Simulated assay, not measured.
Amino acid sequence: MMLVAALPVLEAVAKGKSAAAKAAVENRCGWFVNPSPANAWLIDRDGEWIIATQGGEQAEGDWPPPIAEKQWVSYGGGSYGHGCACMRVLTDRKTMQVKRIVSSAGKTLAQCRRDPKLAEPRD
């Protein structure tokens, strides 16, 4: 009887998959920073999560749009800058990389500014 229960685990291991459950989607909120083309990260209470690096890895999924133009701090008058966002993501905790963005939403700047654990990025 015990052997029958272990078969799915053995099959997963044989296929090179972890016996652990699928990676869990995490909800992360903080500063979404996009300072230049193809570079982006999210700074939350746990640190700085890399979303994209120019010429490097890019997370799958859509980046969060600001909820309004006044909720985006522009760098040098262009479209690059930072805002506040919440994202449902799959991550690699060892490398602090976002692998996939399941969903994302812009939030008010005030939401991030109220959090004492989040320092606002500088341009």
Rank of each mutant, 00 (worst) to 15 (best):
R113Q: 15
S74E: 07
R122F: 10
Q71T: 04
K17S: 14
A20S: 12
V4R: 12
G106H: 03
I67T: 09
C112M: 09
A110E: 15
P66K: 01
A5K: 12
R114C: 13
Q58I: 07
I67C: 06
T91F: 00
R93M: 06
T108G: 13
W41T: 01
A12Q: 11
A52T: 06
D115L: 06
Q97R: 13
G81W: 00
V4Q: 12
E57F: 15
A19E: 07
V9M: 12
Q71D: 14
K70E: 15
K22W: 01
K15G: 10
C112L: 08
D92L: 03
I43W: 10
W31C: 02
M87S: 00
A52M: 12
T91W: 00
L7A: 14
R113I: 13
G61F: 02
V98I: 15
M87W: 00
G83Q: 01
A6T: 12
P116R: 07
E60F: 05
Q54D: 12
L10V: 09
L118G: 05
R28W: 03
S104F: 01
V25M: 07
R28T: 04
V25R: 03
Q71M: 10
Y80A: 05
G30Q: 08
Q97G: 04
D92P: 01
P66Y: 03
Y75E: 08
R45G: 11
I101S: 01
N39R: 09
W72L: 08
K70M: 12
K99L: 15
V98Q: 00
W63N: 00
Y80V: 00
A85C: 10
P66L: 04
A12K: 11
M1S: 14
C84I: 07
A105R: 13
P121F: 05
E26L: 14
G30H: 08
M2R: 12
A14F: 04
A119D: 13
A19T: 03
A14N: 08
R122A: 15
D62Y: 04
E48K: 14
A40I: 07
Q58T: 07
H82N: 07
G106Q: 04
A40D: 03
S36W: 10
